[in-house]
Amino acid sequence: MSNKKAYFISDDKLNGFIESLNEKVPVYVPQRFDRADGTGIYTEYRPYGEGEVDLESRTLLSVKSIFLPQCEVILGFTTNEERVDVVSEAPSDERVLFSIRNCDFEAVRRLDLLFGWDYRDEFWFARRENTIIVVNICDSPLDDKCFCHWVGVDPVATELADCVMLRAEGGYIIWRISERGDVIIDVLDKVGADEVDVPEVEAKGFDNAIEVDGSHNALFEIFTDEIWKVLEPSCIGCGICTFVCPTCHCFEIQDEGSKRVRFWDYCTGYEFTRTEAHQPRPRQYQRYRQRVMHKYSYYPRRFGVVGCTGCGRCISACPQNVDIREDIVRLLKRAKVIK
């Protein structure tokens, strides 16, 4: 590696550092917000300054919202006395995405395959290209809901990031990987962060994985199995698991006034594609099957990678305690992939 230098930024200097960086390039960073009912907090990636920086909780929504916003105008009009112009502009301003985990980063890369597949989604790739990525590597799982190691994600991978950061006693160690990361290093220099060595990182605590890679065809075979009907009767068909998921990418497009808007849709809900055409899966178990099969069978069949990166969000956010890991284990047993 060409650059062996790393910087240590202590917790008390972290905000000052992000603020200085934000003056140069807008920074998106996980921040905490109070819940309206006063029972706690949730964290989200938002432009710096909206809330209180919190890099150690699992964000409610994944970084997907940074590349595929929950709603965005993809087409609009401007009018003046002479003419009507159609405007459709992908965003181009550079920004920094600070402190994303490898499950999310990997999810975004797996989605590149999809958004570049039958047509090139210019909005997705404009945002991909204008974003400098700082990965916060996980040398241990955030909690017992993380299972990236089941689905081929390396929690301490550093190669494809622009900069990498690691939690250390009292702060973070940050180092540069690509040229685009220079802007971060410059600011670290400016705010007087201490120089340290690039640490050796070893991931601990990622145990007891069920290897799901390679089981997509076996799962495909049990599409019509009776097990689906009894697998998750408690699923209510809301949008939570798909909205929080970094790899769910379904969207719908509608006109709102003079704007054409694209926004997230979700296969688990009974209204999925129904207002445009019809609902292809009239039963709730079929809709839940779609979510599981898309991730663990169809996606790997088409793109060679599992469409889930084990971030654990759907598990922690599902109000009815649906745990996709339990279901995958049951399905793999049914498909005779594991005992």
Partner: peptide, 10 residues
Amino acid sequence: CERVCPVGIP
């Protein structure tokens, strides 16, 4: 309804 809201709207 209040229990399931992921962002805690009362």
